[in-house]
Every structure is written in C-alpha cells, then in structure tokens.
Design a binder for these strands. Structure first.
Lengths: 216, 216
DNA sequence: ATAATAAGTGAGTAATCACTCACTAATGGA
DNA sequence: TCCATTAGTGAGTGATTACTCACTTATTAT
C-alpha cells in the first residue's frame, strides 16, 4: 500500500493531508489487519508491529483505537458513497440530452467496480464493522441520505416520467437496481475473487437483467 | 428465546438434543450477544452473566469459545441452506406437472423470508462471522455446493430448456435471482427493520422484477 | 543557530481475556 | 438406597488488552 494511495483516500473536501512515513505505515497496517481479522479481533500491538512502529506512536496520532478505525472508514465511506455519479454523471445526463438508461447504468457500474477493485480492504472493513459501530452507521446514513439517495431519486424519477421505468415505490426501485450490482461486486471481490471473471460479459448481463426487470 | 426454539434449531439429521435449562440459557445468551457485538467483541464472562450461569459452566459444555460459536452457526447454516426448497419444492415442481416459475419463486421467497424473520440473530451472526472463520466458510460452502446449488441448477436448467429463462452462465443466473431476494431480506430485517413494510407488495415487485429480467 | 513544536519511543499499568481445576449438587439406573 | 455419571460452580491463572507517560529525536519557524 503506497502513501499516494492513502493521501488520495484521506483527502476530503479537497483538504490535503500530510502524512509522515510512520503515519502512513500505521494506516496501511491497520487497513490490512482490520480487513483480515476485524476491528475487535485486531490488537493495537499487532498494528504497531506490522507498521514497524512503537505502540505509543499509534496513540500519539489517534487518541483511541476506535479513532483509528474511523480515520480509515470515514473517508472510505465518503468516497464510496459520493461517486463520479454524484458529480459528473447526473449532470451529464440531465444537462445534456440524455443517453439511454443502459448507458447510465454501464457508467455507474464500471465506476463503482473500479472503486471496489482499488479499495477491497476498506470495503470489507465497512461492510463488517458498520453493524457494530453506531458512528459508522451514521456516517453511512448521512452520506447515503444526503448525497446518493437524492441523486438516484432524481434520476430514476426522470426516467420513470419518460416512461422508461416501471412505477414502483422509489425505495423498491432503488433496491432492485442496487442489489444485483452489489451482489456482483461482493461476489467478484469478496466471496470468490480468485475465479476467472469475464467482467465485461457479467456487466452486460447485469445491465440487461436490470433494464428488462425495470421496464415499464 | 425459548427452549423449544433452540431444540428445533439444533436438531440436525433428526437427532434430538436434550438441553438442561442452563445450557439453553447459555445458547440463548450467546446468540443474543454475538449478534449484538460480534464474536470477538463478546466476553465469555458476559455470556455467563446474561445466562445466569457460572463462567465455568460454559466451558463444561464447550471446550473453547469458538466451539460455542460453531454450535450456534452450524445448525443455523444448515437450516438456512437446506430450505423446504431442497426437500419439497423441487420434487413438487418436477414430479408433478410444474407450475410457473413465478409460483416457484413466490414459495421460495416466502419460505426464506419466514426463516429470516424467526432467525434474525443467527442470520446476523453468520453474515458477520463467516469472513473471519474458515470453519464457518467451509460449512457454508459445503451446504451450498452440496445441497443448494445442484437443486437450483437443476431447476433453472429445466426452465431454461423450456424456453422460460434467458440463457446465461448458470452462476450469473443464480446470482441475478438471489441478489434481489437477499437484498430485500437484508434490508427488511437487518438494515431497516423498523420501517413499515408492505411485504406482499414487495414480494410481488420482486417476483415481477426477477421474472421480467430473466425472460428469454 | 536556537527555541518551540511535533513525532516517536517503550517500559509500565490496571483491566480484562479465555480458560482451568478442585470441588459440590443433581440426576438416573441398579 | 447407593453409586456412577453428569451438571454446575467460582476463585484463580497467565496472557493479552488498550492506553499512559516521562522521555528522546526530528522538524520547522524565526
């Protein structure tokens, strides 16, 4: 895990974050081990060891173990929940003449697929830990409710009004679209990452499935 | 949590299991707390306390903490993976004249939905812990590969040959069918259990979505 | 160059961990 | 009734836990 990756990950609101080498090592080690053994199953002593750092150094930068977890998860969730989607895609769709729903889906899926590929460990941590830490749950809810959901709702409603999507409760619609995508990402990177995957084919099947399933 | 529930859960291969009251309390407490805090975050002392039992009593029945986990998870996974589906449904479908795929889906979904409703805690434990415990992963893989997958494959292939389902790699097909269902169950019982759910409507939307998405 | 601040250290601490063991209480078959 | 087996106990164990603190080293601003 390289420092540039961490700097990019931790950059929120455009704020640059400066990391010493040891700080970067701590974060990298924590991400690795949290993903491997889970937060509660990870000893700070082990993080220190793998980071090549004294245990005290960890607590110099993070007052408590949980702060270290949040320092990893918080930007992870934000980057996960605020995809290119929110910033570019919807604008493109609605400000220009919009392309088809399939093109939108394709862009979205590949975008999140690549994010998952580059952040498997953090994805794993978020999925494993949000159930036990209300702080994480809140971060996710905020990010989702404020950034993702309204955009998706706007987009989906637009397509529904254009008669391209079936009328359903918006939550149901979103769930029907998201579940197969998430199902594929989780299978691809967490459950069976070593299988031989024809990603392009899978994505096309996925798009076809969702599209036909949602047709008016 | 009542003893009859536990006896039913632990009954595998028809073998009756006799539990003293304290043993049942231990299992019930362990299920509760494991689901709340996760395995690694749970102290055996706390299980003993909530079960109203000396800590030594736990280790009289389970040599190690992990054995207690497995005693809960193992039958849980089996009951989860070997639904009425495996025993009755497929037989019904193939031995009689078969109904439509929608009827099959409906039966399957309601069946698993009810199972989830009655086993939320165990569902949560399995989902949370399988990533960290190879033993659990193996139990799941065995149960799935031996009992569930062949049945599903047989069924799906049958419908494909009848021209009712699109031709796709079998794994893709299964994933497309299972993801939305699992997505619903997880949302319904784990993510947002307190919302007002119109289950019947959701299930019908789900069936419609899957059916149309899979149409040849 | 110097002083001020930040980064890093590692031995030490109280608390908690999973687990043991010598023991008593309850149960069931003869 | 007696005995053998099983169930249950709780104080005690060494290991490990997250975290502290007095200290040294490195960095930065002036």
């Amino acid at each position: 895990m390289r420092e540039s990756y961490l700097r990019e990950l931790l950059k929120v609101d455009g704020q640059e974050i400066r990391l010493t080498e040891k700080q970067a090592n701590i974060l990298a080690a924590a991400i690795e081990i949290f993903a491997e053994k889970g937060y509660a199953g990870t000893a700070t002593s082990e993080i220190a060891k793998r980071a090549g750092v004294a245990e005290g150094t960890i607590f110099r930068h993070y007052p408590a173990k949980k702060d270290l977890l949040l320092a990893i998860v918080k930007p992870g969730v934000l980057k996960l929940a605020v995809p290119v989607f929110a910033d570019n895609m919807v604008e493109n769709i609605f400000n220009r003449e919009f392309q088809g729903f399939d093109e939108l889906l394709r862009t979205f899926i590949y975008n999140r697929l690549d994010f998952a590929r580059q952040n498997v460990a953090i994805l794993r941590i978020v999925l494993q830990e949000f159930a036990f830490h209300p702080e994480i749950k809140m971060i996710i809810e905020e990010a989702f409710l404020e950034k993702v959901y309204p955009r998706i709702k706007q987009t989906v409603t637009g397509f529904q009004e254009a008669g391209l999507l079936k009328e359903m409760p918006i939550t149901t619609t979103v769930r029907c679209i998201v579940s197969p995508i998430l199902g594929f990402i989780v299978t691809r990177f967490l459950l069976n990452p070593d299988a031989e995957w024809d990603e392009a084919q899978e994505v096309e099947h996925l798009i076809d499935f969702i599209l036909k399933g949602m047709e008016a």
